[in-house]
Amino acid sequence: MTSPDSDGLLAEQLLRLTRRVHRIQKHHLEQRDLGITPAQSRLLRTLAHWGSPPRMADLAERLEVVPRAVTTLVDGLEASGKVRRVPDPANRRVIRIELTDDGRKALGELRAARRSAAEEILAPLTDEQREALGGLLNTLIDGAPVARC
């Protein structure tokens, strides 16, 4: 059984690791000079996994941000030619967001930057430790909901 102190320490370690991951990923993105922020990167990755072009409201929901934040991200990505706004064929009042060829190319660069960052972060671990970490992270990600008091 773990103590509240050890749980607090684990939580702090996870937060520190998250900050380190973000810092290293940002560094690898800056090295590639893509001009894409981490938030824009997340939006591009989300778009890439969507079947048909989503509405901005759908993106906001998926990214768990307010719609205005998505508008700002899309504005920046559209200005750099990575995404475009397109009318919905069934309802011209609805605007959907789709990746451009430049956006798909940027995604390839983003994936390479993330792989480089992951290699740097995971370098101290053996293959067995990486496998164990993956299993533990999956357990935490897919874990049971927290009981409400």
Rank of each mutant, 00 (worst) to 15 (best):
D142G: 00
R32W: 04
V70A: 04
I95F: 03
L9A: 15
R148E: 15
L44W: 06
D7G: 05
T72E: 09
A113T: 11
R23D: 02
A118R: 07
A60T: 14
W50Y: 15
A69V: 12
M56K: 15
I36Q: 04
E131G: 08
L34R: 12
D142A: 13
L137H: 00
L14R: 07
L99N: 11
A48G: 02
L110S: 05
G76Q: 10
L10P: 09
L133P: 06
I24F: 00
E64A: 07
T100Q: 09
A118Q: 10
Q40A: 08
E12G: 14
P38V: 02
R19L: 07
A79K: 15
G51Y: 10
P124C: 01
A132T: 14
H27L: 03
H49Y: 02
L29T: 12
N91L: 07
W50I: 14
L63S: 08
R16A: 07
E12L: 14
T100S: 03
R93W: 03
E128P: 00
R32G: 03
T126C: 03
V65P: 00
R148I: 02
H49W: 05
T46Q: 06
A118E: 06
R42D: 14
V21T: 09
Q13S: 14
L34F: 00
A69N: 09
T71Y: 05
A113W: 13
L125R: 02
E98F: 01
T18G: 12
A117M: 05
A69W: 12
W50F: 13
E131H: 12
L10I: 09
T37D: 12
R55E: 15
T2Y: 10
V83K: 10
H22C: 06
E12H: 15
S52H: 15
I24G: 06
P4N: 13
E30T: 08
Q129K: 04
D5F: 04
K105A: 02
T126A: 01
